[in-house]
């Protein structure tokens, strides 16, 4: 006879095994998402069926309004704060996310938003507060160590080490975005969801963020949304292309970006090949 503890271990082990066999981080089946926008219902995701592989930097590309950000927000159920209606199935490492405690899911699958936002507290507390509140870390030395480690990983330590207790709102946009990444990685997430984190940043800050992402890919699974094909080419290992709320094409980055199979993706990529700057405006 097995006791409850053994069964829990078996369940956990089978999930891990399932994840290894399937080699997928997320398995999404027939996902539909609707939300209300100015008194009309938007069908943002339409029958999305796709797998996001583990241990690969996955980049989601597509035009504005194609549903890529909604898709990302659905992966850790943040979309629910907008009273979205959801149907379909999302398995995270074999576990149905809609049966998980949303707070636990979000602390494992952490998201960084497009617009850089600092919590209304000091630089130090921006990282320490979630650590204390979510991970229940109490030891001051442990918190100090985590704060420094996260800031180093996010390429921000050298810039802020002398003013850790200054208000975080005084930092520049690029620094706040790196602080947001540091805040997320301090929680030791299993997956990092990045929603166009460089959209509002200058080229130098973008370069900083990209180098941070490349450093982090060894440590954590990353799903990254961007509308810049050049950025996707620089970072992606796996690519998913969204159009009109549907997944049009997915696969290894080189395959999808260099030898697209569908006409719709070819058309999307050709806009960038013509004139990158013009394409940024169109997309």
């Amino acid at each position: 006879m097995y006791n409850t503890y053994d069964i829990t271990i078996f369940k956990g082990a089978s999930r891990v095994l399932l994840g290894v066999i399937e080699d997928s981080l997320f398995t999404i089946e027939n996902l539909n998402v609707w939300y209300r926008q100015k008194n009309r219902i938007v069908h943002a995701l339409k029958d999305v069926t796709v797998k996001i592989p583990a241990r690969k930097l996955t980049v989601i590309i597509g035009r504005s309004g194609s549903g890529k950000s909604t898709f990302l927000r659905t992966l850790n159920r943040v979309v629910e704060m907008y009273n979205a209606k959801i149907s379909g199935k999302i398995l995270y490492k074999g576990q149905n996310i809609f049966k998980m405690n949303p707070q636990v899911l979000r602390s494992r699958v952490v998201m960084v938003l497009q617009r850089p936002i600092a919590l209304p507290m000091s630089i130090y507390d921006n990282i320490a507060y979630p650590l204390k509140s979510i991970k229940k870390v109490k030891d001051k030395r442990e918190i100090d160590r985590k704060v420094e480690e996260a800031l180093r990983l996010a390429n921000l330590w050298n810039e802020v080490k002398d003013r850790l207790h200054h208000p975080a709102t005084q930092l520049s946009g690029g620094q706040i975005q790196r602080l947001a990444i540091a805040r997320a990685i301090a929680l030791d997430p299993e997956v990092l969801l990045l929603d166009e984190p460089t959209a509002h940043l200058d080229p130098e800050s973008t370069r900083y963020i990209e180098s941070t992402i490349l450093k982090l890919r060894e440590k954590v699974d990353i799903v990254f949304v961007t509308h810049s094909i050049e950025q996707a080419r620089r970072l992606a290992e796996y690519v998913i292309y969204f159009e009109d709320g549907k997944v049009i094409e997915e696969g290894e980055a080189e395959e999808v970006l260099e030898r697209p199979k569908t006409e719709r993706l070819r058309r999307f990529l050709s806009v960038f090949e013509r004139e990158p700057e013009e394409a940024e405006v169109i997309v």
Binding site: S107, L113, I117, P120, P130
Partner: peptide, 26 residues
């Protein structure tokens, strides 16, 4: 307040109560 502030708190896994605490602080 910018909706992204609330979304940031929720995305980190903060509870509803803690999120409201951060928003009230802002």
């Amino acid at each position: 307040l910018p909706p992204e502030l609330k979304e940031t708190c929720i995305s980190l896994g903060l509870s509803r109560w803690k999120t409201l605490k951060v928003l009230s602080r802002a």
